[in-house]
Amino acid sequence: MFFRKKYKITFRPAPLKSWDIYVQSIFQKPIKSLNEQDFNTLNYYKNKFNWASKLDMLSLNYDALVLTNLNEEIIWVNHGFKKMTGYSPNFAIGKKPAFLQGDDTSKLALQEVTRNLKLEKPFTSKLLNYKKDQSHYLCEITIFPLLDHHQKVSHFLALEKEI
């Protein structure tokens, strides 16, 4: 004689994990574009250093941004800097952009950049720079002096593009 056992199948939902809640919150927040992040960061520095300069130059096409003080020391670089050069932002901060130059960088081009910085006017120049892996690339640099409320230059912003 066969006895049939009746099994009652019940559905037990899996416990809710924190990841489930987190994933939902990711899709509810709009993801900021890199240009928007750059603008927000520079707007922070604008308020911190009391710049009178507008940040409308960010509408131009660029791969990397480099913010320096008057001593040409890097204060901030955007995420595109690492992508273009291979150097992390933490490595670059506190250094002068000259660490990107090497033996084949034109001395005349460097003199032109120095001369234009002293004129305190926006300018564009091209330099042969070196990446972290020592490969070189031609970089078009557009530099804008940033003025404080006394109309004195307090910082420089370089928009860089690999060409």
Results as ranks from 00 to 15, higher is better:
K5N: 14
T142M: 08
E72W: 06
L108P: 01
N90R: 15
Q24D: 13
S33I: 08
N47E: 15
I163W: 01
Y87C: 02
H149C: 03
K95L: 12
F11L: 15
I163G: 04
L55E: 11
K118L: 08
L100T: 05
N43C: 02
M84W: 08
K54Q: 09
N35D: 09
Q151V: 01
Q24H: 12
Y130I: 08
I31Y: 06
D133S: 13
E120V: 00
E160C: 07
G80C: 10
S125M: 04
E120T: 00
K126G: 01
N43E: 11
R115D: 09
I21D: 11
K29Y: 07
Q134H: 07
Y62T: 08
H79F: 06
H136M: 06
M84S: 13
F81K: 04
L159I: 02
K121D: 09
N43W: 09
I26T: 06
E120K: 06
N43H: 10
I9C: 06
L128D: 01
L42Q: 01
Y137C: 02
R4I: 06
L67S: 05
F3E: 11
F99M: 02
H149P: 00
N129W: 07
N40W: 03
K32T: 12
Q101M: 03
Q37W: 02
N69E: 03
H136L: 02
L108S: 13
M57C: 15
Y7T: 11
A109V: 02
P145D: 10
L147C: 00
L42C: 00
I93E: 03
K83W: 05
L108V: 10
L67E: 12
I31S: 13
L108I: 05
F156Q: 08
G80K: 06
A52V: 02
S18L: 11
S154N: 00
G80M: 09
S125H: 11
N35P: 04
K95A: 04
T105M: 04
M57Q: 11
Q101P: 04
M1D: 03
L119E: 03
Y45E: 03
L65E: 00
S53H: 00
E36N: 09
F123V: 01
A64E: 09
K54H: 12
P13T: 14
D104L: 10
D133F: 14
Q24G: 14
C139K: 07
L159H: 05
K132N: 14
N116A: 09
I143R: 03
L110S: 12
Y130M: 05
Q28C: 07
A98K: 10
A158D: 04
R12N: 12
D103V: 08
L34C: 07
L55W: 06
K54C: 05
S33T: 15
I21L: 15
K82Q: 15
D133W: 14
K54F: 05
S125L: 06
Y137S: 07
N47I: 09
E140P: 04
T10I: 13
S88E: 05
F49C: 03
N35L: 03
L119T: 00
Y7V: 10
S135G: 10
Q101W: 05
I75H: 00
R115A: 11
I21Y: 08
E73M: 01
E36V: 06
Y130F: 11
L138I: 10
P13I: 11
Y137K: 10
Q28N: 01
K126F: 12
S106V: 03
R12Q: 07
N43G: 04
A14T: 15
S125Q: 13
K161T: 06
N50T: 08
F11C: 07
K5L: 15
A52P: 04
L42D: 00
F39H: 04
K82E: 15
W19C: 14
